[in-house]
Amino acid sequence: MGKPNDVNEASFEAEVIKAANPTLVDFWATWCGPCRMIAPVVEALAEEYAGRMNFAKVNVDAEPKLANKYGIRSIPTLLVFKGGKPVKQLVGNQPKEELKKALDAALQP
């Protein structure tokens, strides 16, 4: 609870597509500087939105098929899933306030 789960191709369906709550998926890689900078921001949001929103992480090197399926061409890319579909894509440097706007929008019925 309150920390992004590492998900892979096998667990993506259960943890993201079929999740009851909207889910923010952080596509990242070890060689990506901005990914390291944004990770603590995402972790803080995971605490703040615990219980309302799920948080997941996909390592694009380990999961190239998932990255390809969702057209990830730049990282970090954050995708907000709702009802099994990506509803919002945020690419690159994003301040916390921008992320919160996207999450709050996804939480609207």
């Binding site: 901005p34 057209g71 061409r73 730049s74 990282i75 890319t77 894509q89 690419v91 690159g92």
Partner: peptide
């Protein structure tokens, strides 16, 4: 942008 347009080859 982020769908094939990039300003950083070492990143993407």
């Amino acid at each position: 942008l982020g769908r094939g347009v990039s300003y950083c080859a070492t990143c993407d």
